[in-house]
Every structure is written in structure tokens, then in C-alpha cells.
């Protein structure tokens, strides 16, 4: 039911990347370019949060160590605003304490940098139905072959 409402509001699933590394934002954009997905990127906690409050995202990849804000605080605010938005924490240095805290605050998953392509894709598939992620070419083989990369 909810999925239907979403598809009415958005033509395609929306993904937001919040990471202060420009190249990482670019990479996520390039990765998803073959899919019918709207990808937005923000390079700071504040701007990321502003965007997440304005628009409903299906999935947000959120860096834990941002220059201006702690990723955990951003997560808290996002979840408070819309508990349905799936948030996956990513970091180059995740300790058990941080993971525990993030999960307590409602994070839906976590990834260690450097992130393997297959992990990004599989976690995306977990939260956005693969059917909604049809490739632009209409060929579904793309998602399968990612696992072989």
C-alpha cells in the first residue's frame, strides 16, 4: 500500500548520499546512473539534513564522521521526521560502540569503507524492491552481474 503511495509521489525511488567526500558522492551517483533512481548528494550534515526534511527519500546513505555534524545526530533527526526512510550508515572507522548507538537510533544498516559494490547493491535491494530498480535499458541482468564484480 505504502509503496503505491510512494510511486504516486515519485516516479522513481529516491536515494540521498550524505558524505563530505566529493568523490564518494560522485561514485554513488555514477553507480546508480544505470537505474531509474533519483540520486541526490549532500556534502555536509546540515545541508543533508535540510534536504532530507524537505523531500521523502526511500534510502539514505549517511557518513558517520561529517565535518560539521555527527552522523548519529543527523540520523536521529531524519528518523524523527520520517521513520520510514531507511538509513544506512557508512564509515571508514566504525567501532562497535558507534554501530550499537546507530542501531539504537534506528539505523537500518551499516557499511564499512571501502565499500564493496556488491554490498551497496545488496543493501539497496534489501530496502528498495528490485522491481522498482529496473535498469534504464530495461535489462535486469545488470543487478545480477553486480554480484560477480
Amino acid at each position: 500500500m505504502r509503496m503505491e503511495t510512494n510511486t504516486k509521489v515519485y516516479k522513481a525511488p529516491a536515494i540521498l548520499i550524505i558524505d563530505d567526500e566529493e568523490s564518494i558522492c560522485e561514485f554513488f551517483t555514477d553507480l546508480f546512473e544505470v537505474y531509474e533512481v533519483e540520486v541526490d548528494t549532500e556534502m555536509s550534515g546540515t545541508s543533508g539534513l535540510q534536504r532530507a526534511l524537505k523531500k521523502r527519500y526511500d534510502l539514505i546513505f549517511l557518513d558517520v564522521m561529517l565535518d560539521d555534524m555527527n552522523g548519529i545526530d543527523v540520523l536521529k533527526a531524519i528518523k524523527l521526521n520520517n521513520a520510514d526512510t531507511k538509513v544506512v550508515m557508512i564509515s571508514a572507522y566504525l567501532t562497535e560502540e558507534v554501530i550499537e548507538k546507530a542501531l539504537k537510533m534506528g539505523a537500518d544498516g551499516y557499511l564499512y569503507k571501502p565499500v564493496a559494490l556488491r554490498d551497496i547493491v545488496s543493501i539497496t535491494f534489501r530496502f528498495i524492491e528490485p522491481a522498482r530498480l529496473t535498469g534504464k535499458s530495461g535489462n535486469d541482468n545488470n543487478s545480477k552481474s553486480i554480484y560477480e564484480a
Binding site: E21, S23, I24, E26, F27, D30, L31, A92, Y93, Y112, K113, P114, V115, A116, L117, R118, I120, S145, I146, E148, A149
Partner: peptide
């Protein structure tokens, strides 16, 4: 690790 994310990611994408 931050840099490696892009290096490895793009390498993965190329291979794919």
C-alpha cells in the same frame, strides 16, 4: 579508506 572507497568502487564498476 575514504579514498579507497572511490578507487575500489570505480574499479568494481569498470569490471562490471
Amino acid at each position: 579508506n575514504n579514498r579507497m572507497t572511490t578507487i575500489l568502487g570505480y574499479a568494481d564498476l569498470c569490471v562490471l
